[in-house]
Design a binder for these strands. Structure first.
Lengths: 267, 267
DNA sequence: CAGAATGACCGATTATGATTGAAATTGATT
DNA sequence: AATCAATTTCAATCATAATCGGTCATTCTG
């Protein structure tokens, strides 16, 4: 068996289990312990895994599932003030008793805080959002069924015939990677899949994007501008973007970090 | 058992209850007290938990964990050793890679700890189980869709056309309020609804009941004895009950709190 | 044939479990 | 309250077993 082949096996095994022992890998590859140790050493040097006594474990990029409130550690800190203001404005649109859909994402996650004191019917595909609302609010939570994708922190089902199709709401809230003339852009195909499933289950589509998103471009278009009812952003929105949204007959809400919010009507 | 596996289990257990004793962890992992003490010491140094006399506690103070519903919490402490032993025997039935269904309940919840060091495909309708496994294990988690009922801590959908129907597993594990000649008994109609939805999605139905459940009677019969493949209980099972199960051609596993388990074949 | 990879061997290191006495906790009695 | 005995928990020690890092002979590869 070639070295590279073993390395593949080792890396694969290490992903599968919390730890793999040297003996495990021996019987898995059929080579001697000495060789496995050498392989582990090599892979350890290449940062492909971590070497521990008795075997190896997967290198876990900073634990992404934190405790309630900080699920997406990396993105979370970015433009946090803008996101909070935007999320606050989004929740302000809702009245107690409303049915809403919240798509998973770092911006939409910020909605949980203003939602803590409300009582709505919330449908979400985000595990952290559901968890937080369950623990810290009295909202009614409905979850979409499916497998939990740890990386994106969303629940996704490959089937079309799930609860999602039975939940209909007044508004759906979602974030995005970018917002341009072509429409709503997303980077992750998995997120596209999740979001497209939810779009259409609500009367109005409300998009939460901080102003930096107007300059972002991604490869994947999620939906055209026409589908969007409302965009909530911060006051850094470029004039060109505002004009574009206005031309598309989209209601634009500019949330100010201070806490107030103003509405620039379009149409 | 490898050091890292133990650490996972310990960290998992410590989240579950305010304190875990050294003896608890011994029977949970099957290693000696000395080793557990050393592990706790190590994890204490790594700030992963706090060491206290007699055992360890979570680093985060009395944070009301995922078990929001009060009944869940009070039930949790009752017959905890039996439940743990039973849950351990249940997990011992599974091999890595298996697909299993875990129905929500306090006994089945105990399966999360031995599962912490495993890698399975787990389908559940219990939010706490999903949450715990998501945070403390590498298992693949699939959730049933629907509304979260806080009291029972389960996710339930009024619709029949959800993911549940698409997930098929080798075994389904469930608890019950009682087990008698009429079959499996449950007290809460909501639980009945949740459980009946899942039964039939697995080859074998494995029932986890501590021996006190054989004297319990409830008004609602969930399913007849014939549907049950295996019953896992503790050594307090009355002879009459054992005879009843044997007559029904049910495989009975008696889990001993010590850690070992023995099988009393039935037919 | 040269160079690298591999496997076997061996002393050194480390983890584990049992034992023991010290320390802390409990609770029973004064 | 205060003391003491019984129990539990702990830390230190040691023997055993597992694991490791090196050396060296052998095999594979180009």
């Amino acid at each position: 068996m070639h070295e590279k082949e073993r390395h593949r096996i080792i890396l694969s095994a290490v992903q599968d289990r919390p730890v793999v022992t040297v003996v495990d890998l021996c019987s898995l590859t059929g080579v001697s312990e000495a060789t496995i140790r050498r392989d582990i050493s090599t892979l350890h040097m290449q940062q492909k895994l971590r070497r521990v006594r008795g075997g190896a474990e997967a290198i876990t990029p900073p634990q992404f599932v934190g405790l309630a409130g900080r699920p997406f550690v990396v993105n979370e800190a970015l433009r946090i003030n803008e996101k909070q203001a935007i999320a606050r404005a989004a929740v302000a649109l809702c009245e107690d008793g409303d049915s809403i859909i919240i798509n998973g994402g770092t911006t939409t996650f910020q909605m949980v805080h203003p939602l803590a004191s409300r009582r709505l019917q919330v449908f979400t595909n985000s595990f952290p959002i559901a968890e937080h609302l369950l623990k810290h609010s009295k909202n009614t939570i409905t979850l979409s069924g499916g497998t939990i994708y740890r990386e994106q922190n969303i629940i996704l089902s490959p089937f079309d015939n799930d609860v999602t199709r039975n939940f209909y709401a007044r508004r759906m809230f979602m974030g995005a990677q970018g917002l341009g003339p072509l429409g709503l852009m997303e980077a992750d195909p998995l997120l596209i899949q999740a979001e497209q499933k939810l779009i259409g289950q609500a009367d109005e589509l409300v998009v939460l994007v901080d102003s930096s998103k107007f300059s972002q471009r991604s490869s994947l278009v999620l939906c055209p501008l026409e589908r969007i009812s409302t965009v909530i952003t911060d006051d850094g929105i470029p004039d060109a973007a505002a004009a574009m949204l206005e031309a598309a007959d989209i209601n634009v809400i500019v949330a100010h970090a201070g806490g107030a919010q103003e509405e620039e009507a379009a149409s």
